[in-house]
Amino acid sequence: MAFLNALITQQFAPDAIPAAVRAAIGKPLRRAAALTQLALVGACASLPEAQRGQPTLLLWQSISGPRLETQNLLDEVCLGGGEPMPYDFLATQPALAAAQIQPFLPGLRSATHLPLDNESASHWALMLGLACTWLDQGRCAQVLCAQLDHWSDSASGQWLTVTDRPLETALASLQIAREDATGAALDNADFPAALREWLHGCQTSHLTLQSAALPRLAVEFARL
């Protein structure tokens, strides 16, 4: 049994991200790509300071990936005819985000980036299923599951914080469902909104998220 401890949605105009970083950590995050800054802002919003030292894993999916940075790199390499600026190459590497945010999240043990291959793809059930399993195995105390996207005109972060024990702020319990999920929530980009709606409503005691791709994988949320 795991527990949903926070559900955070963030929307930014791209040029507002640095200010959000400054508000979160009191200073700018120098030489960090937009996705890295989004990850830092979201992680800080998801975890109160007392929780940031707990062993933490980060799973984050993205449709955009470092799209704008990759475009910039391609321009430099293919049109500039020379070698890129090191920072521009580094900005295309999403794996770097973890190293840059760990100083502010000292419990961060590893981070896995799952780039999505189309607009309608989503791995919420996969990420939550892995989180439940890894928490059960004792690999960590909490798992941050996120979707981060950065486009030319918008940036967004959706965050679910899953912990191995109920904190005071816990919203629901969750576990991998062992029975067929009928009437389940869809595994798509709107799932966090559906989860929020369920949390704020009172119609049903359970909400099941069925993986769109893996028939045996469903995650069941229950009210506390």
């Binding site: 590497q93 999403p94 794996a95 981070a111 791995h123 993986s211 893996l214």
Partner: peptide, 9 residues
């Protein structure tokens, strides 16, 4: 079937 991609350098 299902596809999942990983990019951690």
């Amino acid at each position: 079937g299902p596809r999942t991609s990983f990019s951690t350098a």
